[in-house]
């Protein structure tokens, strides 16, 4: 067999890789189109604003929308300040040392832990040991821990991207380190930090395993943080797995996919705003 010329080899390999890339894009488009095609016709105003009837066979998903917003929103509200403070400490208040190595190791490991383990932990710690029960609060605290590493990492990157000159100028004008951080560094890192927060919000909305074990699956509208609440993702899982109602399952999935799409586009737009900003 004659050896392929390097040029031919390159053409073959590169075309294979382009096919792989096309297949990936195709998969994404297929998944989104498939769900929306089957689900969008069932997404009506009534579906979005009514409570489910007979376990979700009929009726809408209003309590799940509220539940999802409460659990994910609260998770991000808890995780964001902690994450940003961690990033500020790592970047502005210390040098690389054994302590930062430990903090980074903790965040990296936390990022790799599967959601079902977070679920188990949240179940035994928040719901049982701390006595919060299956509730919005337990779910939110569990999710907060889960998205914390993402917020730390994105905030750290955003803060590091702020030019060093900004800090020098701020010091030069006589500000304290705290003033420099809060009024100069965080101000210009804000779009990047916000991108991380928006992506974390998306991640908590799509999470299922962890909320199943901590927030429970009550169908009613949660009236306080201590009520159990079923999130959209879990509702979709239960509807489709137990074959309750396929049309409602598709419709719920459509709402889920659209919220994720909107959040991702928003995050992407924020990031670009950050890159393009004239300096």
């Amino acid at each position: 067999m004659r050896r392929l010329s390097p040029r031919t080899a390159q053409q073959i390999v590169v075309s294979i890789m382009w096919m792989l890339a096309a297949a990936t894009v195709g998969t994404l488009v297929f998944i989104i189109a498939f769900i929306l095609f089957h689900g969008l016709p069932h997404v009506t105003w009534e579906f979005l604003t009514q409570s489910p009837v007979s376990m979700g066979r009929k009726g809408g998903i209003f309590p799940m929308i509220v539940g999802t917003a409460m659990v994910s929103g609260l998770a991000v509200i808890i995780a964001a300040p902690i994450g940003v403070a961690t990033a500020v400490y790592l970047t502005e208040y210390t040098r690389e040392s054994r302590i930062t190595a430990v903090i980074r190791f903790g965040a990296d490991c936390l990022a790799g832990i599967p959601s079902i383990i977070f679920g188990l932990f949240g179940f035994v710690f928040f719901t049982i040991t701390l006595g919060m029960g299956l509730s919005v609060l337990s779910g939110a605290l569990t999710l907060a821990l889960m998205v914390l590493p993402t917020i730390v990492r994105t905030s750290e990157e955003a803060i590091r991207a702020v030019p060093y000159a900004y800090r020098e100028v701020s010091y030069g004008l006589g500000s304290t380190r705290w003033q420099m951080v809060t009024r100069v560094v965080l101000q210009s890192a804000m779009p990047g930090i916000f991108t991380g927060i928006v992506l974390s919000l998306g991640r908590s909305i799509s999470e299922t395993a962890a909320v199943m074990l901590t927030a429970g699956s009550a169908l009613g509208l949660p009236s306080s943080l201590f009520d159990s609440s079923r999130t959209l993702a879990l509702h979709f899982y239960i509807l489709s797995r137990e074959g309750v109602s396929m049309s409602n399952a598709y419709a719920t999935a459509s709402v889920l996919i659209i919220s994720i799409l909107v959040l991702n586009v928003f995050a992407y737009w924020l990031m670009h705003k950050l890159v393009r900003k004239p300096r």
Binding site: I82, T86, Y89, Y93, I103, F105, G106, A107, I117, F121
Partner: peptide, 22 residues
Amino acid sequence: ALALLMVAFSAVSGLALITVFI
């Protein structure tokens, strides 16, 4: 700096709590 350090340890303590309880 001390306050931030304490907050920064929340990820590590979260990891420790998870390990212990599981």
